[in-house]
Design a protein around this nucleic acid. Structure first.
Length: 630
RNA sequence: GCUGGCGUAGCUCAAUGGCAGAGCAGCUGAUUUGUAAUCAGCAGGUUGCGGGUUCGAUUCCCAUCGCCAGCUCCA
């Protein structure tokens, strides 16, 4: 290709069809727009909508089109930022009057005009000072601030489409007409630069696809997410409720939801007993002094509830279980031979969550953590972390979470205010976590400044059936609490040494975990977790006796079975229990009663035909087995 | 906590300043049913709670509680 030729021309050379679908190119790893000139050679690759970076460019252009439309309709608007995000884009605006949902339709219409006009999108470069002056003149104070943060010698790029020009690093589509399918989805407030002390802007979320059918499929996926919403299923399947009278963020588990939770807990207990944990119970409140020793009073106060006065002493509701497990540790002189000591507890804690953060079962003010604290010698730390990672993996797989993402949260070394303990101790802790992850060959993202006040942590984000992420296991290394409580163990040489603590949960909390499970399974729990595993459906009144007998036998065999003797037709009952997501239905009429048989129906799969009762019970029992750790 | 939206029967939703309604669920009765909704009748409400404007408020205003979408924060 000649120097100065456009990327697009190079693309055409590769093929008409290819060029038509291309959004941008990657030259030596750098993304460039199709309208840009080729000023250097290198490895050349065309990207279409299938490629994530190209998709982001496409949606980013859609965000610009939205900003252009908003600027036309609301001339007083000030623009902030408008990036592409997972599945779409947003743009933040400062407008005198907030948008209403009805405004979105208007904006969409204006966007359609801009797309129709097919304005070419051209880039321009200005030096930093000119750019600042330009934005100050235009009263675009947010844009001016963005440019001011750039280094003094920076060249600032702009993109122009029609009358609209926006500060932007690019690249972009070649013209506005390239956006084929878009939709504005929602409105929200958002702080400028995510800082709650700064102005609240109006954010519009939208999404864009290069095919109408893909947009429709995406919108259908949103519908599917709504159908699986645990708050909706929680009501429809009679699993749990919350009550205005009782207070926000506090959960009431109904018998069926409680059964699911109980099964999760039973499984959890089995696994922990098998894995060398001692299961403990601890109180819900403790004196303020204990929380002063642990540091919670100083470092975690904003998340804790006000003290309760009992006999002149002040007590606090626990936000964490760790100090209690430490007290248990301290009841004996521990030998190096005793370690590691692992205490596990389904411990109910209470934390103050800001009212706007509350959300169904996923964000609540009282919840039960599947907590454990491992006290070990420093040289045991890495092995223990590996064991926890293995346990976490087993737990995830047992609930059909096929994959997960790992985040290593470390302290921000600049921020000395939010963390206790010396640098050396932090480095040691962070190093142990990194080594454990390496040994399990787990890739991870780094979360700087995301650590707990007492130590760094690994967070595991479970990917559900729809590919969404759920906060699951977390593993924290802590050298600080053992120090604060003066914990010790007697070493082989008779000297007293300091143990290390691991705080960990492998599910998260019962509330959040079960909430996630409801959505993951869409309410259709696998047989071992289903609150009702089998329902017996008699055809007519004369079959009730046999149906009850079948129900009794099922229950005798340890299955959770119900008999539906309502005066309804069989079709009604089948529909009802299908919607209640019961895994198995046994239909009994004259034919079955005569031959000690049942007509088996499996959830979602329909009629499986007539089966002898004994065989049906065996099959159902086999399908309903709780997973075991091996 | 902040911004915006919302709160009407158990659930889903109508009624825009003038007698609060429907479907499903519930109850009663009829029907005795063979693989995703049998029919009929009955009952169900201080319109979240408190104040105000008005002859009159589900509707307009203020406050409060709760919910929703985000922001911030997090198991």
């Amino acid at each position: 290709m000649p120097k100065g030729a456009k990327v697009m021309e190079a693309a055409e050379k590769l093929g008409r069809k290819l060029a038509k679908r291309a959004i941008c190119a990657r030259i030596d790893g750098e993304l460039v727009g199709l309208a840009q000139s080729l000023d250097k050679g290198g490895e050349f690759e065309l990207l279409d909508f299938e490629a994530e970076p190209a998709r982001a460019i496409y949606r980013h252009t859609a965000a610009h089109i939205m900003a252009q439309a908003v600027t036309r309709l609301y001339p007083a608007v000030k623009l902030a930022i408008g990036p592409a995000i997972e599945d779409g884009f947003y743009y933040d605006f400062d407008v005198p009057k907030p948008f209403s949902p009805e405004d979105l339709g208007q904006i969409e219409k204006e966007m359609a005009k801009i797309i129709q006009a097919n304005y070419p999108i051209e880039s321009a470069i200005m030096d930093r000072d000119h750019a600042i002056a330009h934005f100050q003149r235009e009263k675009e104070t947010y844009k001016a601030e963005l440019v001011e943060d750039l280094p003094p010698d920076a060249k600032v790029t702009f993109f122009r489409q029609g009358e609209f020009m926006d500060l932007c690093a690019g690249p972009h589509l070649v013209s506005t007409g390239r956006v084929k399918a878009f939709k504005l989805l929602s409105l929200a407030g958002a702080y400028w630069r995510g800082d709650e002390r700064r102005p609240m802007l109006q954010r519009i979320y939208g999404t864009a696809f290069d095919k109408k059918s893909d947009l429709d499929a995406y919108l259908q996926r949103l519908e599917e997410q709504k159908r699986r919403d645990h708050r909706r299923l929680g009501r429809e399947l009679d699993l749990f409720s919350t009550h205005e009278e009782g207070g926000a963020g506090l959960v009431y588990w109904h018998p069926k939801g409680a059964m699911v939770r109980q099964l999760v807990e039973e499984f959890w207990r089995n696994v922990h007993n098998q894995n060398g944990y001692g299961l403990v119970y601890s109180p819900h409140i403790a004196k303020v002094d204990l929380w002063k020793t642990s540091g919670h009073w100083q470092w975690y106060k904003d998340d804790m509830y006000s003290p309760i006065k009992i006999d002149e002493a002040e007590y606090l509701l626990k936000p964490m279980n760790c100090p209690f497990h430490i007290l248990i540790y301290q009841t004996q002189t521990r030998s190096y031979r005793d370690l590691p000591l692992r205490y596990a507890e389904l411990g109910t804690v209470y934390r103050y969550e800001r009212s706007g953060a509350l959300h169904g079962l996923l964000r609540v003010r009282g919840f039960t953590q599947d907590d454990a604290h491992i006290f070990c010698r420093p040289e045991q730390l890495e092995d223990e972390l590996v064991r926890v990672l293995e346990l976490a993996d087993f737990m995830a797989k047992s609930f059909d979470y096929e994959s997960y993402d790992v985040i290593l949260s470390v302290r921000d070394v600049e921020d000395t205010e939010h963390y206790i303990g010396d640098d050396e101790v932090w480095e040691q802790a962070e190093g142990a976590l990194v080594n454990a992850l390496k040994r399990k060959e787990l890739d991870y993202e780094l979360g700087i400044g995301e650590a707990q006040f007492y130590g760094p942590k690994i967070d595991i984000i479970l990917r559900d059936a729809l590919g969404r992420g759920w906060q699951g296991p977390t593993i924290q290394v802590d050298f600080n609490l053992p120090e604060r409580f003066g914990l010790g163990f007697v070493g082989p040489d008779g000297s007293v040494q300091r143990p290390v603590m691991i705080h960990r949960t492998v599910l998260g909390s019962m509330e959040r975990f079960v909430g996630g499970l409801i959505e993951h399974y869409g309410g259709a729990f696998p047989p071992w977790l289903a609150p009702v595993q089998v329902v017996v459906l008699p055809i007519a009144d004369r079959h009730h006796e046999y149906a009850e007998k079948v129900g009794d036998e099922l229950r005798q065999a340890g299955l959770r079975a119900e008999v539906d003797v309502r005066n309804e037709k069989i079709g009604f009952k089948i529909r009802w229990h299908e919607m209640q997501k019961v895994p198995f239905m046994l239909i009994v009429g004259d034919r079955e009663a005569e031959t000690e048989a049942v007509s088996l129906r499996a959830r979602g799969e329909g009629d499986q035909g007539s089966v002898p009762l004994g065989k049906a019970m065996e099959d159902i029992s086999a399908a309903a087995k709780m997973p075991r750790f091996s």
